[in-house]
Simulated assay, not measured.
Amino acid sequence: MSMQLGLDGMPARLVRVTPSRLATWQDCRRRYRLTYLDRPAPPRGGPRAASTLGAVVHNALHAVFGEPSARRTAARAALEVDRHWSSEGFRDDAQVATYRERARTWVADYALRHAVDGAPEPTGEVVGLERWLSAPVGAMVAEGRADRLDQRDGSAGPEVVVVDYKTGRHVPDADDARRSPALALYVLAARRTLRRPCHRVELHHLPSATIATADHDDASLAAHRESAEAAAVALGAAADELEADPRRAEDLFPPAPGPRCGACDVRRHCPEGRAAAPADAAWAGLAP
């Protein structure tokens, strides 16, 4: 257990958080409890096509960028999609065939733009693939798995760039990259873990071939850190109170019903969520 000195001089527990934990807490506290605290964990919803597709693309890119630059070809990239393909959550065979071919095209085109020597969008040196980052940051231990970490030449010398792959319907822009709590936490953790300069974050949206870039400074990182710490302290305190008195579960972890409840994977355990929105089809989140 990680500790630091509290205000009274006694050791205070550092709360371990990942971007997904923080996002779930801020989105819906009941979903947070059902996902991370209840044991045994309640059954969750079935697979969703958008998540399946995202995992396939991530796994294929992980394999491609794990190879020497000369082997990061478009043909190899398309084959990796086939190797990692899963049809879970798709509507039917026709939809499977459509999105399998799209994923092959996305990853192959991405390899042409990024992965081969002389590519128009060079990657630099890959210093981390699905890299687990963990570092104490104030009142929390920020943890998470970054899709890719590149080392590139910056204005002040070599620096680490945090890259996150996206395959969903939304096409990200620079504001999305700048506002992303996950990317900011990865920057903070990468600085401590790798002991190298790091301030640039990038969202690589494969369906649109878009790269959304933002450069963090001390002020923007401090704002993200402050928000994440406040959430970490709050969720840690709520978890401790629940452990002390399980009867307070509904009080400490109320639902936040809304339209997004249609895609929630624990909606079967939440009457308020089911009343707020009809269940989305398993393939509803696919990029058009």
Score class of each variant (00 low, 15 high):
65 F>N: 08
67 E>W: 05
67 E>I: 08
68 P>D: 15
68 P>N: 12
69 S>N: 03
69 S>I: 15
70 A>M: 04
71 R>F: 03
71 R>G: 07
73 T>P: 09
74 A>E: 15
74 A>T: 12
77 A>L: 09
81 V>K: 05
81 V>R: 03
82 D>F: 00
83 R>W: 09
86 S>N: 14
86 S>V: 01
86 S>T: 08
89 G>W: 02
89 G>N: 06
90 F>W: 06
91 R>Q: 13
92 D>W: 08
94 A>T: 14
95 Q>G: 05
96 V>T: 09
97 A>T: 02
100 R>L: 15
100 R>E: 10
101 E>G: 11
102 R>E: 14
104 R>H: 08
104 R>W: 01
105 T>V: 15
105 T>E: 11
106 W>E: 04
107 V>C: 00
108 A>D: 07
109 D>Y: 03
110 Y>S: 08
111 A>T: 11
113 R>N: 12
115 A>I: 11
116 V>Y: 03
116 V>E: 07
118 G>V: 07
119 A>F: 02
119 A>N: 01
120 P>W: 07
120 P>E: 04
121 E>I: 15
126 V>D: 10
126 V>K: 01
128 G>A: 00
128 G>D: 07
129 L>Q: 10
130 E>T: 02
131 R>V: 04
131 R>G: 07
132 W>R: 14
135 A>L: 00
137 V>D: 03
137 V>F: 00
137 V>T: 10
138 G>W: 02
139 A>Q: 11
140 M>P: 05
141 V>E: 06
141 V>I: 15
142 A>S: 12
142 A>T: 09
144 G>Y: 01
144 G>V: 00
144 G>F: 04
145 R>G: 05
146 A>L: 10
148 R>M: 15
148 R>S: 04
148 R>E: 13
149 L>W: 05
150 D>C: 04
151 Q>T: 05
152 R>E: 11
153 D>S: 14
156 A>S: 14
156 A>V: 00
157 G>V: 11
158 P>V: 14
158 P>F: 02
158 P>M: 09
159 E>P: 14
159 E>Q: 13
160 V>D: 04
160 V>E: 06
167 T>Q: 11
169 R>M: 03
170 H>E: 08
171 V>R: 06
172 P>N: 06
174 A>I: 02
175 D>Y: 02
176 D>C: 08
177 A>N: 10
177 A>Y: 06
177 A>I: 00
182 A>R: 10
185 L>M: 15
188 L>N: 03
190 A>N: 05
191 R>V: 12
191 R>I: 09
192 R>Y: 00
192 R>M: 06
195 R>Q: 14
198 C>F: 03
199 H>M: 02
199 H>I: 05
199 H>Y: 02
199 H>S: 11
200 R>T: 15
201 V>P: 01
201 V>K: 09
201 V>F: 06
203 L>K: 06
203 L>C: 04
204 H>S: 13
205 H>M: 07
